[in-house]
Structures are given as C-alpha cells and as structure tokens.
Amino acid sequence: MRVLRFSLFLALTCLSTSGFIFAEEIAFPKVLTHFVPYSNNPIFTAEGPGHWDVKIRERGWILKEGDFYHLWFTGYDGTRAGLKMLGYAWSCDGIHWTRSPCNPVYKKHWVEDMMVLKHEGTYHMFAEGKNDIAQHLISHDAVNWKRVGPLDVRLSNGTPIPEGPYGTPVVWFEEDQWYLFYERRDAGIWLARSPDLKVWTNLNHDQPIMKPGPQPYDQKMIAMNQIIKYQGTYYMIFHGTAAAQKPSLWTTNIAASKDLLHWKKYTGNPLTKPEANQSSGLLIPDGKRFRLYTMHNQVDLNLPQDP
C-alpha cells in the first residue's frame, strides 16, 4: 500500500510538473502583442468607383523579401456576386505602395482571402476560390500566376472531407512536410498535412485544433490568418467575433503552440479594439521588430509599442 501511494504521488507530481513546465514554455513576448495604431491609417485602400477595385475584401497578404515588400489583395466591383480578382502592389518601406500597372494580375478564377509563401524560388499562393473552396496557385515572379486547382483535403481515413466550404487557408512548410490550416464556416480551425501538396490528410483525429471561445471576443466565429515561428514557439494570428450585432465586429488575436496541435490563446486578447473592426492580421518583421497589419476592407498598420 505504501508503495502504491508513493507511486501515485510520483505520477501526480510528474503530471503537475509537466503541466507547469508546458505552461511556462508558452510565452507571449511584448514584441508580438503590444502595438499602437499608425497615425496615418489606412495605408492602402481600394481605388473606388470607376476602377476595377471598387472595394477590397478579405485577407490580403504582405511578404517581405530583403528590403522589398510585396502586397497582394482582392479587388471587386463591390457587389456580393462580383468576381473577386487578384491585385498586386509593392513598397520599399511597407507603408507607401505602388500598384502594378497590370492589375488585376489574375482574373481567370475567383481569388480572395489569400496567403503567399516562397519555397525553392516559387511563390505559392493558397486562397479561397468561389464558394470558399481553398485553392493553390503558383508564380515565379509574384505577378503572373497559374492556377493549380482546388486543394484535395481528406479525412484521416483517406476519404474526402464532407462537402461544403473550407477556406481561409494558411500553409506552413517544415521538415519536408506541408501543413494546412483551414476553417469551415468560421466554426473552428482544422489542420491537415501533405508531403507533396497533392493530397492533404487531416490530423488531430479530424477534430479542430482550435474552436471559438470561451471568451466573448471570439465566442461565435474564428479563422486563422497567419503562422510564424519565433524563438522556438509557433504563433498564430487569428480573428474572431462575438457576433453580438450585425454586421459582426471582428478583432485580431494571437495564440501559441509548441507542436502545431495544441494552442493556447493569449490572455491579453484581443490585440485590436472591437469597435475598430480590424481583422485578417499579419505580423511582419521590419528588420528590427514586428509590425501588425490588418488587411480586411482596408490595410491598417499598427507599430511596435515603445519599450
């Protein structure tokens, strides 16, 4: 009996200690969480009536290469049914932007809510197509794009996921594996993996790796916008809403993980005020620290808070 009690004590101690260590390892540094609005927001908007981009919508994307900033965005005629087309702009400071004279740079298919990563000299774009179906496009110059097609996402048993939207794709590449985060009707975030970008298989027993709540700021709907790795920890930027009123007011938030599966939301969320209605956030390094951009409806900039 004494041996049993001692063994039980050791087991409980180990569980408690491991939980404590895990909690201690998940940190939310100020450089990723404390920002102040730029005084001259917005820094990028639609050109308005008379132009191809009467309005812009959903997540745009900023990619910094050296001292050069790329910006991709979705423009449309302002109607719900209007074709969502891809626009491109560039900048040397991440604040003042020059639009491509070729805009829209892609209009063969519906493209919105995109993200871009560069791998072995090729730009890979993952975006929503029509009816919020995630798709893949590629480019060798960041401007001219070729559509590969919709993403083939499977359940863990190899069968296709149930019909319906699967959008706001976020892709991460590490150790010869591609990871896809996606949402379904903003009701949760799922994770799938692929060795070759052809077939994506769900992880986590087909269950979402993050759900809305329990706090009010994301109690009704969430969607992931970006993943970065900083000092050995993965950080997710996501947006959420309480949907307490119409139209819904969205906030930009952050969560962290050590393994891509188990995520802890920052207790200081949201990073933006609900009344600002800023979503589709991105953390972009400026060479010294991170800037926080929000991309939906217009591009706003939040600068690092002084130490």
Rank of each mutant, 00 (worst) to 15 (best):
M1C: 08
R2V: 01
S7G: 03
L8A: 10
F9L: 11
C14K: 03
C14L: 14
T17C: 14
G19R: 10
I21W: 08
I21V: 15
F22C: 07
E24N: 13
E25A: 13
I26Y: 12
L32K: 00
T33C: 11
V36P: 00
Y38R: 09
N41C: 12
N41I: 14
P42T: 00
P49I: 11
V54H: 06
V54Q: 10
R59Y: 06
W61H: 15
W61S: 13
K64G: 08
G66L: 14
D67T: 13
F68W: 14
L83I: 13
M85N: 08
M85C: 09
G87E: 12
Y88N: 02
W90K: 13
S91R: 08
H96D: 10
R99E: 05
R99L: 06
S100Y: 08
V105P: 02
H109R: 14
V111D: 01
V111I: 15
E112T: 13
M115E: 00
L117W: 01
L117K: 06
K118Y: 11
E120W: 04
G121D: 00
H124I: 01
E128V: 09
E128F: 07
D132T: 13
A134E: 01
A134G: 14
L137C: 01
V143Y: 02
V143M: 08
N144W: 03
W145V: 11
P150Q: 05
P150G: 10
D152V: 13
D152Q: 13
N157Y: 06
N157F: 04
G158K: 00
P160V: 04
P160M: 08
I161T: 02
P162A: 03
E163P: 06
Y166N: 14
P169H: 08
P169D: 07
V170T: 13
W172Q: 05
F173D: 01
E175W: 03
D176N: 07
Q177T: 09
Q177S: 10
W178C: 00
R184G: 04
R185D: 09
R185Y: 00
D186H: 14
W190S: 11
W190Q: 07
A192F: 05
R193N: 06
P195S: 06
D196I: 00
K198Q: 12
V199S: 05
W200H: 01
W200R: 03
L203D: 00
L203I: 01
H205N: 15
Q207G: 05
K211L: 15
P212E: 09
P214G: 06
Q215I: 06
P216Q: 00
Q219T: 04
M221N: 11
A223S: 09
N225D: 15
I227R: 05
I228F: 02
K229E: 05
Y230T: 00
T233L: 15
Y234C: 04
Y235T: 04
Y235N: 06
Y235V: 10
M236N: 10
G240L: 10
G240T: 07
T241W: 06
A243F: 02
A243K: 02
S248M: 11
W250L: 08
I254D: 07
S257L: 08
H262Q: 04
H262P: 01
P270A: 07
A276F: 10
S279D: 04
S280W: 05
G281C: 11
G281Y: 05
L283W: 04
P285K: 08
P285R: 06
P285N: 07
L292E: 05
L292C: 09
M295L: 15
H296T: 10
V299S: 06
V299L: 15
D300R: 15
N302S: 10
P304Y: 04
D306C: 09
